[in-house]
């Protein structure tokens, strides 16, 4: 399990941040447009956006006076890596169980 995967899980553990990602899954949006969708201040939204950016879920681009947010693959890949980790984990454990069962009969 790597740091990025855990950051990714923490980043999307928050419902507001999941909602931000959902909105961005439709289109690229400036932070000001995101704010309109929430009952929260701009600084509060900016904080969420910063966490998502840190975990690799979004990419921020300054266009004129606007800060545009769009989805980025890294955060999602980190989650996938994490699931892959458990995939390997179970594969190994279930094989160990098979060995144990076989030795039991000897």
């Amino acid at each position: 399990m790597d740091q990025q995967a855990f950051d990714a899980f923490q980043a999307i553990a928050d419902p507001s941040r999941r909602e931000i990602l959902r909105l961005l899954s439709k289109e690229r949006l400036p932070i000001n447009s995101l704010v309109e969708n929430f009952d929260m201040s701009r600084p509060a939204i900016s904080k969420h956006v910063k966490i998502l950016e840190g975990a690799g879920f979004i990419y921020i681009e300054d266009v004129g006076r606007e800060r545009y947010c769009s989805l980025k693959k890294d955060g999602f890949s980190a989650l996938q890596n994490w699931i892959n980790y458990f995939d390997g984990f179970w594969n190994e454990k279930l094989k160990t169980l098979g060995t144990l069962l076989n030795n039991k009969n000897k």
């Binding site: 999307i12 553990a13 999941r18 990602l21 959902r22 899954s25 989650l79």
Partner: peptide, 14 residues
Amino acid sequence: ILENADIFSAMNTG
């Protein structure tokens, strides 16, 4: 968190 988020399918479609 993965299943509640339709984002993943949206991401893939995107």
